[in-house]
Simulated assay, not measured.
Amino acid sequence: MSSLILTRIFLATAAVFGGLSVVGGAFASHALKERLTDRALAIFETGARYQMYHALALLLVALLFNRAPESQTFFAVAGWAFIAGTIVFSGSLYALSLTDIKWLGAITPLGGVAFIVGWICLAVAAFSFK
């Protein structure tokens, strides 16, 4: 996959994730406030908060991807890890808060591991700059 295509994918996904995080936070504050328990609402809001953090991290990856060709592999892995982490971590928290299906909480840490992999790859990429 060309670097330009990957940059576009990361940039567009960051924008979509960021926008959906704002929508999700607003939805939780207004539409879900009366329908969910305080605990379920806090779980939903945690998903939205981590989604925004990692939308911004993915934006950073997209912006830096072509600035350091020697680090592109690490940036690519970081980007995909942030995408996977957002889907699994935030997605499982949204589903858990809305359905109260307890086993969904068991897959949330897998998304957290993806986030950690992304941040480690971002750190390695930073030290690979020439």
Rank of each mutant, 00 (worst) to 15 (best):
S2R: 02
S2M: 00
S3G: 08
L6A: 10
L6P: 00
T7C: 12
T7L: 10
A12P: 00
V16R: 10
S21W: 11
A26D: 01
F27T: 07
H30S: 07
E34P: 00
R35L: 12
L36Q: 06
R39L: 13
L41A: 04
A42E: 13
I43A: 12
I43D: 13
E45G: 08
G47L: 02
A48K: 05
M52H: 10
Y53A: 03
A57D: 04
A62D: 02
L64M: 15
F65T: 01
N66V: 02
R67P: 01
P69D: 03
S71C: 15
Q72W: 02
G79P: 01
G79L: 04
W80F: 15
A81H: 04
G85V: 03
T86H: 10
T86M: 14
I87L: 12
V88K: 05
F89T: 00
F89Y: 12
F89A: 04
S90R: 09
S90F: 03
S90K: 09
L93M: 14
Y94P: 04
A95L: 14
A95N: 08
L96F: 13
L98I: 13
L98H: 07
T99I: 03
D100H: 14
K102Q: 13
G105S: 11
G105T: 09
G105D: 11
A106F: 11
A106G: 03
G111K: 06
V113L: 15
A114I: 01
I116W: 04
I120Q: 04
C121E: 05
L122N: 05
V124S: 00
V124W: 13
V124E: 01
V124A: 02
S128C: 09
S128E: 13
